[in-house]
Amino acid sequence: MGPNSLFGPLDPASDAGYTDAPKRKGFFTDTSVCIGCKACEVACKEWNDVPENAFEMLGTSYDNSHSLNANQWRHVAFIEKPAAKPSAPSVDLGMPAVGAPVSDVPQDEKPDFQWLMSSDVCKHCTHAACLDVCPTGSLFRSEFGTVVVQDDICNGCGYCVAACPYGVIDRRRGPEGDPKVGIAQKCTLCYDRLTDGQRPACAAACPTESIQYGDVDELRERATARVELLHERGVMDARLYGNDPDDGVGGTGAMFLLLDEPEVYGLPPDPVVTTKDLPRMFTRAGMAGTALLIGAALSFVRRRP
């Protein structure tokens, strides 16, 4: 228990009681080299026996995996970003192509079409709301600083699902007969592989090393260097996400280099761990409880005997 235990920069493993913990491990996902091949999705499912989500086309570019959830611990997002149209009225035509229609003569203007791809994953936050609210101690901080669900403990109360500011963790609903139905499931950063010094399955598979695994502090340096290189090359949209230890979750174990606003990828622009406001909440609840007690007492006192 230290000063920043509820909010602020922190070494999560030592805060969780580990004395000689190894260096904190995490991901740096450089979406500028992601080719949307989904090897990470498949490698994760094969290693962790994650069952299928559903066999249904969603029509949202090449993303038919919908989102991170109990049956999807890695999710590749696809955003077809049409060329920045000069001051085109963003009229909602009701037709699929939002924004001005493509001019019939494509030759004249230079459409710098972009197809953004990014492999999303649990953030393994420094301040993990899911871990904080878990009433059974199933969600725990590993010695590597990662956040892992203990399948043999979780009773499926679902509190973590509502607490996660990124909407990562979920309670598994199906398919029928799956042993983990009813309990919370999410990326474990391949905790079992880490205990044997092996790389997580998705990082091992990623063909272009968009997903990089390593020590979090070293990854933060690499991320900063990479974003500066991209800025030098004129990719001004490149920005880092989750690498600032002072942010609302104390920095994340899985940080990203994005090429657009976070919400374009379905990520919250300024996430904050709910635990930050917990002391305030308990104080207010204490006042309300006291008021209730007093109210009850007054109800009896004021009456004629």
């Binding site: 609210v133 878990c134 059974t136 979780c154 009773n155 499926g156 109360c157 509190y159 139905v181 009813g182």
Partner: peptide
């Protein structure tokens, strides 16, 4: 409402001051 009602007693496994539940 629990996903695994049989494990209700796991609620008493720990005292998590950061968990209102």
């Amino acid at each position: 409402d629990l996903g695994k009602p049989s494990r209700f007693l796991n609620m008493l496994r720990v005292v998590k001051l950061t968990s209102p539940m």
